[in-house]
Design a protein around this nucleic acid. Structure first.
Lengths: 334, 334
DNA sequence: ACATTGCGGACAGCAACTGGCCGCGACCGC
DNA sequence: GCGGTCGCGGCCAGTTGCTGTCCGCAATGT
């Protein structure tokens, strides 16, 4: 399974040892030595080598003893099997495309980087499995938001990292479709959208493109030498070129349940504050969101009476839902 | 940054080379050699070594040529930096705890396995960052469902893999809290819940415990020799011990928008079917869910009139929401 | 055509690795 | 307490492997 090829090499053995230590927590020394095809003495030396490399290998003596890879100063290369790799690719993809704005929005960037690493070295058969599952596993409300195509996002990320020219099918804001050849420079996440900062070869100028408006992206082969950015920082450039930040709503409401009960029902989804002691059995909900749908949903999940709903836009929203639901729940046939 | 420790070792250099090749796609040979502190000739030999190990390193000649790590027969050990590791841990954790039932429910198991691997070798400082972000990043409606504590889930997974005895604080179905000492055998995901199949040392019998009812779990130190399962398969045992599968709702409704518009608004969230051509401008929504909240939310996201809502329970649900929202949207003060 | 880059053979010197042996300490079950 | 099992690390002698340098060759883009 993980046997790869047996090379008698010392360094290859060290790599194999690292993999083995990650696959199982405890390994009796003799078994390890047998697996690696060396004597126990040499195994000890290999372990010592790993330790010198900075990977702390704990060992316990006595019967049932053995070696175990512990947490160290830096992360060792992860040896994952096929299933784990697929799960990882899907999870990272979800994190890169779906993650919430304020929370792990910052984590989306590293997630995307990690994803490019994984995908680049992933065997084709695994990539096919990921592609197949991707279709099924959109699974999540964000898909509804017309988020970026994960495949496109991934291609763009790789091209940025590798400084490779791209050909894009792009739909501009006014709906016109254009073909663009660009030198991609950076992917920036702003709000809950991804933007590609690129040098447009057709127009000879910098452009900020929305990834979710990019239908297809393919690598054109040629690599390029990065130009100097028209600003101190990719983020700054993109921010400058985006007109307005998407409107945020600061939601506030009073829930007619005790605070801890509300927290239990809503999880970490909204901030729940205690009200003053006189108002026992009630609490205040606060959340900051771009989508009133989410706010309405949160109120619904609270399963209790609600009052003092705060942006008036949300009240309008609730009224609209209410009317629609009333209609839907009464009419039982088309 | 990634320098670890400089060991003049050959094997360490091979590891470093692997990391470098993953960090950037193209590396000119001379630059690589310089980074590794060896001559180009030795670099070529190192590359050859990697190839012998099964990692396909592509090389292109000519100016702008260089080395690149391609997709191979098996996944090479992933060398991730700190940020990537944190993002990865968060993403995997999300996949393991939140993932939807039918879709990547199957992927939850490998995700959890991968997570145990990562966490086991993750430096404490990174683990702290993950823990810190975890609190913020529940971010998602599932948190509200009282899903399992990721930390507990992780501890259980590690203990299963390492066959280590555990002490659990468990809240039984009737609400009584008990302390249990168990030998954990397998984690099984059924429906959208995690179950721990374990041998209860206090009672001397097998038990199936719900992970989300487990408040704390700590490793007791001792390792044990796995007992024989009372069935062919952990899944079978757990299935047998769970009385009823959680009730599922097969939701159906007619949306008063064209099918493709509905798909655009709902993403992969629900299945949208065309109706017969006479009914242009309408389509049928189908989804299968355990939570009527989600169904209601989906209908709301469709932002259109809805009719022929199908389980009557959902109609009741909608009516309840409607009334609550009507109240909330009119009363603007507590 | 030229420069740049990768490929691989040959060689000599040096460094490292290997296996076998040893005594030591830690730990567990009897 | 005692013996068995296991990890630790020193020592040694033989062998293996690695390294840098030099070389001619092939591929590629300017």
């Amino acid at each position: 399974m993980t046997t790869l090829v047996d090379v008698a090499n010392t360094s290859s053995r060290t790599l194999r040892l690292l993999s083995l230590l990650q696959a199982r927590a405890y390994w009796p020394g003799p078994e390890l030595a047998d697996r690696l095809g060396v004597s126990v003495r040499t195994l000890r030396r290999d372990v010592e080598r790993l330790r010198d490399l900075g990977y702390p290998v704990d060992a316990t003596s006595g019967p049932e003893g053995g070696y175990r890879l512990a947490a160290g100063a830096s992360l060792p290369p992860l040896a994952l099997d096929d299933e784990e790799a697929v799960a990882l690719a899907l999870a990272l993809q979800g994190a890169a495309t779906n993650s919430d704005d304020d929370d792990n929005g910052a984590a989306a960037q590293p997630a995307l980087r990690a994803l490019t690493k994984v995908v680049q070295v992933m065997p084709p058969r695994l990539r096919r499995r990921v592609d197949a599952l991707r279709a099924v596993a959109v699974s999540g409300p964000w898909g509804a938001e017309g988020g970026p195509d994960p495949a496109v996002l991934l291609t763009l990320a790789q091209a940025c990292r590798d400084t490779e020219r791209l050909a894009l099918d792009y739909t501009a804001a006014d709906g016109t479709r254009t073909q663009r050849r660009v030198e991609p420079h950076a992917l920036v996440r702003l709000g809950r959208r991804w933007y590609l900062l690129a040098w447009d070869l057709g127009r000879g100028d910098w452009r900020t493109l929305r990834v979710d408006r990019t239908a297809t992206a393919r690598v054109e082969g040629g690599r390029f030498r990065p130009r100097e950015l028209p600003g101190p920082d990719a983020l700054a450039v993109v921010e400058g070129s985006i007109r307005t930040a998407p409107a945020r709503h600061e939601v506030s409401a009073v829930l007619h349940v005790p605070a801890d009960e509300a927290r239990a029902r809503l999880g970490g989804w909204a901030h729940i504050e205690e009200l003053d002691p006189a108002q026992r059995g009630r609490c205040r909900l606060r959340m900051s969101t771009e989508s009133l749908d989410w706010a309405a949903f949160a109120l619904a999940r609270a399963r209790c009476d609600v009052s003092a709903v705060e942006p008036s836009a949300l009240r309008d929203h609730l009224r609209a839902w209410s009317e629609r639901f009333a209609a839907a729940s009464s009419a039982s046939s088309a």
